[in-house]
Every structure is written in C-alpha cells, then in structure tokens.
Design a binder for these strands. Structure first.
Lengths: 147, 147
DNA sequence: TAAATATATATTCCATTTCATATAATATAA
DNA sequence: TTATATTATATGAAATGGAATATATATTTA
C-alpha cells in the first residue's frame, strides 16, 4: 500500500521537479548538439569553458559536477579530438590547465548561438520579469546549496 | 576569443541553472540512497512507481525520462533482485505492467521518508510561500514543455 | 629537514548505458 | 484478409561511467 495514497509524492518533490524540468529543457537542444557530432558532456564542458578558459581540471569539475575520473577521461578524449588543449600549471605541477582549441572555439560558438535561440523558444511565453524571477530563484537555490 | 566576454554564458542559461541546481539538490540525498544499497536510477524508478503502481514500461519512461533500453534493462535487474514485478498487459500483449513488490515497497517507503526530510532541510531557509512559488514555476515549466 | 599527510590528476577494472537492431503484437491500408 | 506500417519491449556489441587505487607533487608536522 502506498505510504500516502492521497498525495502524489513526485509531483511535489523539489528534486523531481528540478530533474524533470532540467531534462525536458535540455532534451530538444541536445538533439542539435548530437547532430553537430558532439556528446552532451562535451557540450557541457565546452560551454563551461567558454567564458572561463584555462581552468584547472578541478575548477572545471566544480562547474560541471562530474566525477573526477569521468572528467579526466572526457578531457583526454576531447584533447585527442582536437577540441581542447591540456597544459601543465607552472605554479602547481600536479594541476593541468584546460584550454579550448581554435576548433573547439568554433564549435562552441555555434552551439552557444543555437543554445540561446533554443532558450528563447522555451521561454517564449514568459515575460522578462517571469524569466528573471525564475532564474533568480534558481541562482539563489544554487548559492544556498553551495555554501 | 569568447563570443561575449562581458557576459558569462552559463550563469544566465536556464538549462545550466536547472541542471546545476538539480544536481546539487540531489547530491547529498543520493549518498543516502546508495547507503541503502540502491542506485540512483533504482530510486527514481521506485519513487515514480510509488504513487502510480502498475504502469507500462512506456508510461513509466515518460516519468523517468530514461532511454527505453536503459529502462528495460533496469527493470530486468530490479525484477531479478525482487524489487519489482513484471506482468503482461492483457489488453495489449506487447506491453508489460510494472508493479512494486512487497520488498520494493518497504524500501521505497523508507527512502520516501528520508527524501521528504532531506527536502525540508534543503528548503529550511525558504518560507512556505517561496517554496510554493518555486515549485509552481517548475510545474508550469514542465507543463509548457510537455505540451 | 625527514616523514607524514593532503591534493590534483590518471588509470584499471568492472558495471552500466547507448546505438542499432530484433522481435512480437497491434493498427492501418489496399 | 493480406500486406504494410506502427508500437512496445528486448537484446547484443561497443562506448561510457564509476569505485577503488595509483602516481606525482605540495603541504604540514615532528
């Protein structure tokens, strides 16, 4: 017997609402990403680096929130495919600095444009006040959770 | 050179804000899920079935938004582990109906309690009005995207 | 400074997911 | 009704992800 038959769980569960909306928002756009020959994780890495080139692997991981070995291997593949460059940090020789290559830059610039266009479609029915409110709430939630 | 050096992309990109907040909200709770010996995907399936037992694989997939073969294999494993039951649909013999077993029910009930408690911690600093506003916006976004 | 501890990244091995396709049942069209 | 298309689920091979651990450098402690 359900724990609580008269009140659906997931429809009032924040983590579910976030996961579902996240997936739905990303879904159509990811089809375009794949059409460009890029996996979703590649796109996330490129987008995260697009305004912060030269991060260490650790700093990058704080943005993309992957597992460390997963990111390490993704970087290896992306370097092999010519999308990124890996340089040793002179200050801390354990660390590597990750840069977008010219090829990766072209790719991410295209995708950034498509992403913005896609977002404007998703949010077409929302006023700019509503959009700001929604994004603001999410940013606040992120800040709360990061501290 | 960045496409737009003076305006960070990801911090104003809805899909990123959703993905990041989703991951941050789920993160600590998923540690508890794993501590209960359950993978995150198992938990998502059990939670989705908790208030809608007896869905077809396809209906369930519309809730969890996995790939069809992924869900199919997850179900196979969960049945083998005694958490779920798979029955043929009498009306449509192609379809299978998925039910939670007694064992699965016990497990999910425990996790549902922990999930609610975790959510109340995450949202501790929010008034109930703010909580309702946030969830309402997400539900509206989901509805928009589903139609 | 030597030893111990901590940190950043890489690697190995195994589990899981994905892509493409198969199978079986249903719905539709000729 | 027979052929065709569609739908629901399953499966196999290959790619990817994750847990544990290794390696190399940096930091702290005695």
């Amino acid at each position: 017997m359900p724990m609580n038959a008269n009140k659906p769980f997931v429809d009032d569960y924040l983590a579910y609402l976030l996961a579902r909306s996240s997936k739905l928002v990303s879904e159509q756009f990811h089809a375009k990403v794949k059409a460009a020959g890029v996996s979703v994780n590649y796109w996330r890495i490129l987008a995260s680096l697009s305004d912060a080139d030269g991060l260490t692997l650790k700093q990058l991981n704080q943005r993309v929130l992957f597992n460390q070995p997963t990111l390490s291997k993704l970087i290896t593949r992306m370097v092999a495919e010519g999308l990124l460059e890996r340089h040793q940090d002179k200050q801390d020789k354990r660390a590597i600095l990750i840069f977008i290559s010219a090829l990766g830059r072209d790719l991410v610039n295209d995708l950034l444009h498509e992403a913005k266009w896609h977002e404007s479609e998703v949010l077409a029915d929302y006023s700019s006040e509503q959009q700001a409110l929604m994004k603001g709430m999410l940013r606040q939630l992120i800040n709360t959770l990061e501290s």
